[in-house]
Computed example of a mutant assay.
Amino acid sequence: MNHLKEKLRKRKFSITVELEPPKGVDTSKLLQAVNDLKGVVDAVNITDGPMANMRTSAIALAHHIKTETGVESIFHLTCRDRNTIALQSELLGASVLGANNLLVLTGDEPTRGDHPDATGVFQVDSVGLVNVVNTLNKGYDLAGNQLNAPTEFMIGVAANPCAENLEKEVEKLEKKVEKGVHFIQTQPVYDIKDLQKFTNCVEKLNVPVLCGILPLKSYKMAQSISKNVPGIKIPDSILKRMELGGQEEGIKIAGEFLKEARAYCNGVHIMPLGNTKLSLEILEYSE
Rank of each mutant, 00 (worst) to 15 (best):
N2H: 14
E6I: 10
K7R: 11
L8F: 01
R9F: 10
K10T: 09
R11T: 02
K12V: 12
F13G: 00
T16W: 10
L19P: 11
P22W: 03
K23F: 13
K23Q: 13
K23D: 07
D26G: 12
K29F: 14
Q32N: 15
A33S: 15
N35V: 10
L37C: 06
K38P: 08
V40L: 13
V44E: 02
V44R: 08
D48M: 05
G49V: 09
P50L: 11
M51H: 14
M51N: 15
A58W: 09
A58R: 05
I59D: 03
A60C: 11
I65P: 07
I65D: 04
T67P: 00
G70T: 02
E72D: 01
I74A: 05
C79Q: 06
C79S: 08
R80Q: 09
R80Y: 10
D81E: 11
A86L: 14
L87R: 01
Q88N: 09
Q88E: 15
L92D: 09
G93E: 06
A94N: 08
V96K: 10
A99F: 00
A99Y: 06
N100T: 14
N100D: 10
L102I: 07
L105P: 07
L105R: 03
T106P: 00
D108Q: 09
E109A: 14
T111S: 14
T111V: 14
R112F: 13
D117R: 13
A118Y: 13
A118M: 13
T119M: 07
V121Q: 12
D125A: 08
S126F: 07
S126N: 11
V127W: 04
V132S: 03
V133M: 07
L142A: 10
G144D: 10
L147N: 07
N148L: 11
P150L: 05
E152G: 14
M154K: 14
I155R: 13
A158L: 08
N160I: 01
C162D: 02
C162F: 04
A163C: 00
N165G: 08
N165K: 11
E167T: 13
E171K: 15
L173A: 06
K179E: 15
H182I: 06
Q187Y: 04
D194K: 05
L195E: 02
K197V: 10
K197T: 13
N200K: 15
V202N: 02
V202T: 08
L205H: 11
V207M: 02
V207L: 04
P208A: 04
G212M: 08
L214P: 07
Y219N: 03
M221Y: 06
A222C: 07
S224W: 14
I225E: 02
I225Q: 01
I225A: 03
S226A: 12
K227V: 11
P230S: 07
P230V: 02
G231C: 02
I232T: 06
I238C: 04
I238Q: 01
K240V: 12
K240G: 03
K240F: 12
M242A: 03
E243Y: 08
G245H: 00
G246P: 00
Q247G: 00
E249L: 01
I251N: 06
I253K: 00
A254Q: 00
E256L: 12
F257S: 02
C265V: 05
H269M: 08
H269F: 10
I270T: 01
M271F: 11
M271G: 08
P272K: 01
T276V: 05
T276F: 02
L278E: 02
L280T: 05
L280C: 01
I282N: 01
L283A: 06
E284I: 10
Y285A: 12
E287G: 15
E287H: 15
